[in-house]
Nucleic acid binder design. Structure first.
Length: 1036
RNA sequence: GCCGAAGUGGCGGAAUGGUAGACGCGCUGGAUUCAAAAUCCAGUAUUCGCAAGAAUGUGUGGGUUCGAGUCCCACCUUCGGUACCA
């Protein structure tokens, strides 16, 4: 019986489904294990071969854990709100819910094709009202809580109002907006309800806030930074303006320190932790104010992490957008400043980033150093960003290289401030070593002493204070879109109020179109009569994509619960994700926001652990391998004629190449001959005026003209002698003007890649070609001719009559024609083979290009594996004979390797181990149950279908995935009697000798000495290093 | 610019500081076949050599070590992330 993956795989997939093999219970005697894949967005394009890499890896791990006796939660669902479905809705009018359902069906079918062991009874979709009810519920909790810095956790707003009523906002440390005023209990109690509510918004963990957005009036929508290019929308090129808009925000900054602290407890890749730490960007320093000379009402606030360098300040720099720029600019400087501002405004962010030159302009005003009263000039420059900190910098050129560059360029003074600074005339030196000089009250102190002294002085004089600053901003939580969760809020008297919990979910209303309203309101503004209690307008923006994905890992634990987002019993059983697998592109988006929500839920006692994912692994991207074809330009044909026809075939006519460069191109023809009066011009038959021009030139030169059209050259491109004949005939004739008649068959020529090397690279245009009509870089010409791209094309083939493409490794994407669909591969080789091959490609974490070169090897392996059980006549080969020691050794060695490698997620080496075991058993001619049965269990996580088929053949009832027990290695079988010792001289291996494994060191030394006499002859042996069971090194 | 990762045969890759190149692809030769496919066997880092064998060899240059692909320093290249972050 032959190995027939198609039949086997369908059979077992149906069995698994019918018998609910992968359904998991929240009650078990076994230890739990939670394996999670990152939430996918079900895109219309479906899966490509890159997507399943992580799904297969997590599936292998889940199956392995299950076979090892764990109760494994391994769920899948969809982050199904999102822009693509909405954009499709805008262009077609189809409700995004329908599009989404269709896409999910495709996605699901493709996932099923891979034989993954998900518990589909727990599937969730963020766009399902039963799901987003709880997203809205969590939002309401955030609205009803504030962050108390003394308790270091979120507490109910009611506690805050109690405190306000008793003692105002003194004596409580709560995270709030920067502009929150001080007020007493009397103030608070005198406020009306509206004033109190307005004030509370400054404390709530989610709150409406005015913030700048990229508003595109033509599209009626807000764009992300990367949708804006050069001040216009990337798609459509419409103008984009900065607009202040009321948006919901999340006070994630309240959790900044805890989000940094929590990272220390996580088994996550360091690079991800680094990125999160940098994103949060905690810096400890001081904020202080510089008075402005002649402007008593103004002072420039700066934040610095090096307040100790304050005596080195020789100028100030404001961002060109800083609010004081206009006021500080003197009339003498106004023209300069305005010119500079105009210039910076015209430059894109990319330009500004790439800028290496120093630019800036002087305002004409001076700031006063609070420490020494010295006046320093105030400049503006675009290296200071308006959006960061205060948009102003105190410049210390002796300690900061950027400031130093600026000072040198504009000839500003540089004052050294530490005796340890080296050569500050040559470059800035940011050292903190040494003692302060030129530094007033801190002269002679060191860094550790100076900083607190300065901060104390500033605080005492009311000029500044110590401050911790974060780069992290509060997260905007509004989207001006339709396809997202409605915010459970209505507006009354300009203030937001929550709806009742009993009114959840607030359903997404129907709208006539998925576009903004004429007045610029979000699409929900179109919903008719959408009012709370028929009176109050609902919030019209919807939640962003990260809302639903910030807590989904809890919903899987208890996906059908209508009374809670997750019951405490379920949460306390599963607790946290043990292994989380996904791409590193989510490093600071999803992975930071979801940690924030989890910390909040933890504060409320709803999440059992501070961090929801214990271990995180990033799978590498599978890149596409694109193929390129080379289309010839006109100059190619000239070079071709010269290299392939005129020189080799017509040398007797002494050809001359006329136009050496494009300048002469219009004034002369391409070729002539020393032996006759013929001239040749190569040109497309379409360019009639050029032909006429050349005809005239030839005539005035007294030459006869042969026009070789590019189109006729293309037709004969693989037969240069035919072209040579044409030229000979033309030379022999007396005709003054010769040109081919008739309509050409071809218009384009593509040149095999190996031939392009002979020509100037500029002769070709490289174009992507669909990789599905290319095999091993050889283009399938038959298929190619059927494509529009090649309809009127001929191909110049290489010496082996093949057409070669070049290749490039790039992101797998439709636009590069390099997408490989897993369904096609599964159809050809089977899911088991596809799974093993994806793993065999290389380490999980590493990015690697997709190519199918090696897949035949894996396919061959599976057939060999099968052949240990069945011969080609379909006879079952497995015997009940007891395995011998050699056979058991192979089994246990394989068990050890596979177990260890799965544990460290090194799946590629597992596949190798299976190949080696199979080769070994075949060599031993072994088909004994005693070794093959455990081997089938070992391979079951990797090739689940064939494992089940063989499990059944071995006489078992039901599925291996339900009843199999993962084998355990018995080390005693691995012990060897003899060991082949490599004997090295000075670390270089010379010979290996077999010695008893338990031999004493002395006898090893003696044996080694004897074995290497040939090399050591006559040299003194200084030392012998013996590592028992490893090697012996002789030092001479 | 900064941060991070990685550089090993023709290719994908393997290697707790201890025989570099496992395993697979590809290629070469052979068997089988009327022939092909499939399958099986053997070989396959480079250079020299008929061979035995020798020399070289993990991006470059240093260092630590009896011994370095692996650890340390500097540099080069590629990829990823990120920013005028004060």
């Amino acid at each position: 019986m032959e190995y027939n993956p198609r039949e086997i795989e369908q059979k077992w997939r149906r069995y698994w489904e019918d018998n609910h093999i992968y359904q998991v219970s929240n009650h078990s005697e076994s230890p739990k294990f939670y394996v999670l894949d990152m939430f996918p967005y079900p895109s219309g394009a479906g899966l490509h071969v890159g997507h399943p890499l992580g799904y297969i890896a997590s599936d292998i791990f889940s199956r392995y854990k299950r076979l090892s006796g764990y109760n494994v939660l391994h769920p899948m669902g969809y982050d199904s709100f999102g822009l693509p479905a909405e954009q499709y809705a805008i262009s077609t009018g189809q409700h995004p819910a329908i599009t989404t359902d269709e896409n999910i069906a495709t996605f699901r079918q493709q996932l099923d094709n891979l034989g993954l062991s998900y518990d589909w009874s727990r599937e969730v979709r963020t766009s399902d009202p039963k799901y987003y009810k709880w997203t809205q519920w969590i939002f309401m909790q955030l609205f009803n809580h504030y962050y108390d810095q003394d308790a270091d956790k979120a507490l109910p707003i009611a506690q805050l109002t109690d405190h306000f009523a008793a003692s105002g906002n003194a004596g409580i440390r709560a995270v709030c907006d920067d502009d929150t005023p001080r007020f007493s209990a009397a103030d608070w109690n005198a406020m009306d309800e509206q004033a109190q509510q307005r004030l509370l918004l400054k404390y709530r963990l989610t709150f409406p806030e005015e913030s700048f957005v990229n508003w595109c009036p033509a599209m009626g929508t807000v764009l992300s930074n990367d949708e804006v290019k050069d001040g216009v929308s990337e798609r459509g090129g419409y103008p984009v303006e900065r607009k202040l808009m009321k948006q919901w925000a999340m006070r994630i900054t309240a959790y900044a320190d805890r989000l940094i602290e929590g990272l220390k407890t996580l088994d996550w890749p360091e690079s991800i932790k680094d990125q999160q730490t940098n994103w949060i960007g905690r810096s400890q320093g001081a904020s202080l104010r510089f008075a402005v000379d002649g402007h008593p009402d103004k002072s420039i606030e700066v934040f610095t992490t090096r307040v100790d360098t304050i005596y080195g300040v020789t100028f100030m720099v404001l961002a060109p957008e800083h609010e004081y720029v206009a006021a500080l600019t003197t009339d003498a400087q106004r023209a300069d400043i305005e010119k500079y501002i105009k210039w910076t405004a015209s430059r894109s962010d990319v330009d500004r980033m790439a800028e290496k030159r120093v630019t800036g302009a002087f305002t004409g005003s001076y700031a006063i150093n609070p420490l020494n009263g010295k006046k320093v000039p105030v400049w503006i420059a675009d290296y200071v960003l308006a959006g960061y900190g205060t948009g102003a910098v105190m410049a210390v050129p002796s300690g900061d290289q950027r400031d130093w560059n600026f000072a040198k360029y504009f000839n500003l003074p540089i004052i050294p401030i530490l005796d340890a600074q080296q050569n500050t005339e040559e470059a800035a030196d940011a050292t903190k070593e040494g003692r302060y000089i030129n530094s007033g009250i801190i002269n002679g102190l060191n860094y550790a002493e100076a900083t607190p002294k300065l901060i104390a002085w500033l605080e005492e004089h009311g000029l500044g204070k110590g401050k911790i600053q974060y780069r992290l901003r509060n997260a905007v939580f509004s989207r001006q879109r339709y396809w997202g969760e409605p915010v459970p809020v209505y507006w009354k008297n300009g203030l937001p109020y929550l709806i009742e919990v009993s009114e959840l979910p607030l359903l997404l209303p129907q709208v006539d179109k998925y576009l903004p309203t004429e007045t610029g309101e979000p699409p929900l503004g179109r919903a008719e009569g959408w009012l709370y209690q028929n009176k109050y307008p609902y919030e019209l923006s919807t939640m962003p994509g990260w809302a639903g994905s910030s807590w989904y890992f809890y919903r899987y634990m208890d996906s059908q619960n209508d009374d809670a987002f997750c019951s405490p019993e379920a949460a306390n059983y599963w607790r946290q994700v043990d292994l989380y697998l996904g791409g590193s592109e989510h490093a600071v988006g999803h992975l930071l926001y979801s940690r924030f929500w989890n910390h909040f839920l933890y504060d409320l006692g709803l999440a059992p652990e501070r961090e929801y994912a214990k271990k995180l692994v990033n799978q590498g991207m599978i890149q596409g391998r694109s193929n390129l074809v080379y289309r010839a330009k006109e100059c190619f044909f000239e070079e071709f004629l010269w290299i392939k026809v005129l020189q080799p075939l017509l040398s007797d006519m002494q050809p001359v190449q006329m136009a050496q460069n494009t300048l002469q191109e219009t004034t002369t023809y391409d070729f002539s001959f020393s032996t006759n009066d013929l001239a040749i011009e190569v040109v497309s038959f379409k360019i009639l005026d050029k032909i006429a021009l050349k005809k005239g030139i030839a005539k005035s030169d007294g030459k006869r003209l042969l026009v070789l059209t590019i189109e006729e050259l293309i037709a004969d491109i693989n037969q240069p002698e035919v072209i040579a004949d044409k030229i000979r005939k033309a030379a022999a004739s007396k005709e003054p003007y010769i040109i081919s008649e008739g309509t050409p068959v071809y218009e384009y020529l593509f040149v095999s890649h190996d031939l392009t090397q002979k020509y100037t690279p500029e002769c070709f245009t490289a174009l992507h070609v669909d990789v599905n009509i290319v095999d091993d870089d050889v283009l399938d010409l038959e298929k190619a001719h059927k494509l529009n791209q090649f309809e009127k094309a001929n191909f110049k083939l290489d010496a082996e009559r093949k057409f070669l493409c070049s290749f490039e490794i790039e992101k797998m994407s439709k636009r590069w024609f390099n997408v490989v669909n897993p369904d096609d591969v599964v159809e050809k080789y089977g899911a088991d083979c596809f799974r093993m091959y994806e793993m065999f490609l290389g380490p999980l974490e590493q990015a690697k290009p997709w190519n199918t070169k090696g897949i035949d090897g894996v396919s061959r392996f599976l057939r060999k594996f099968w052949a240990m059980f069945y011969d080609d006549k379909g006879r079952f080969l497995v015997t009940e004979d007891a395995p011998n020691r050699d056979e058991l050794k192979v089994l246990h060695r394989t068990t050890k390797r596979v177990t260890e490698d799965i544990e460290r997620l090194s799946f590629n080496t597992c596949v190798s181990a299976f190949m080696m075991a199979t080769n070994d058993f075949r060599e031993l001619k072994c088909s004994k149950r005693g070794v093959l049965e455990p081997l089938v269990v070992l391979i079951a996580p990797f090739a689940p279908h064939v494992a089940d088929e063989l499990w059944q053949a071995l006489g078992h009832e039901g599925s291996i995935h339900a009843s199999g027990k993962f084998p355990v290695c018995d080390e005693s079988f691995l012990q060897e009697d003899v060991f082949n010792y490599p004997i090295a001289i000075n670390g270089k291996t010379r010979v290996t000798i077999a010695l008893p494994a338990d031999a004493a060191k002395d006898s090893l030394e003696a044996a080694a000495k004897a074995a290497v006499e040939k090399w050591t002859d006559g040299q003194e042996i200084k030392k012998i290093i013996v590592i028992p069971g490893r090697m012996i090194n002789i030092v001479v």
